[in-house]
Amino acid sequence: MDMRMTKNRWLLAAGLVAFALLPWGLGVYHQHIMIVSLFYVMMAASWNLLAGYTGQVSFGHAAFAGIGAYASGILAAKAGVNPWVGVAAGTLLAAIFGFLVGILCLKLGGIYLSLTTLGFSEILHIIINNEYEITRGTMGLQVPGLLSEYSKLAYFYIFLAGALLTLGVVYRLIHSDLGLNFRAVQNDERAAASLGVDVVKVRVLAFTVSSALAGMAGALYGHYLLLITPQIPSLDQQFLVLSMTVIGGMGSFVGPVIGAFGLEILSEYIRAYGEYHVLAFGLVALAVARFAPRGMVGIFRSVWERRRQAAVHPSLPAESP
């Protein structure tokens, strides 16, 4: 058991190093795809923390990324604040908004969160479009980069660090005492409450952390694109993040990572044939949510388990990992 653990750890480390070296062999275009994929890893993994582990659906995840992007971008472009300080401010602001929206509606139950976050994202759009003197509306707000010299390679490592930080936070949370509470709430909130779980507190916490991580992702992304538009907090963006998580595997740790890379890379190829990727992903996500609610990870896992069971002993019950 211990041997296998250490071996897995070495494999993971080796894989990470290989991945970190990958962009050196790629052109600028493919480096860009890697960076965008890493942005989606942050978004999908943090959305999964909420939806996959506590069973709450936020439709405002892209909006929280927008809060982070605009907060940091406006501070940098209008007030000359250092972009790194801006990213921290954007993350904090997203956390504060997440906390407020969370306590406003989470004691009422899941449906209210979904409705309110959708409304929240709409309010944000109205404000961005109305305050065009500050936000430049749909024209987009030009913002400085994170580094004095623009380098795709440097951005790749910044986004890799951001993605690892996000995954680390999610991993620590779900494997802590709180993680037990998260999963209990998702499985059956009434039973959880009867065992002493403060369901509202658990949800508000998950929602706040998830929103803060989205804020960080959005702030970094804005300083990478150098132009912040209402596309960042759009429903299309929200839909992409949701599809990535659902198709990759909601409620599993690696699912969102697989989904983010898979869909971002695929959408670059589909884009060559016109703007069909939203429709294509929508249909696939619909089919997956309907027929394989555990996503790709769930499909791999059940195939693998069946094969292993057949190989070891046909009548033994599955040993859990």
Binding site: V57, D236, S243, G282, L283, A289
Partner: peptide
Amino acid sequence: TLIRPTYGDDLYSLILTFILSIVMQST
């Protein structure tokens, strides 16, 4: 086809109808 199999699972009915709305919009 879509909603009936999700009875009792609010999470998936929310997600499915949201995806459906985007699919209809792009259509």
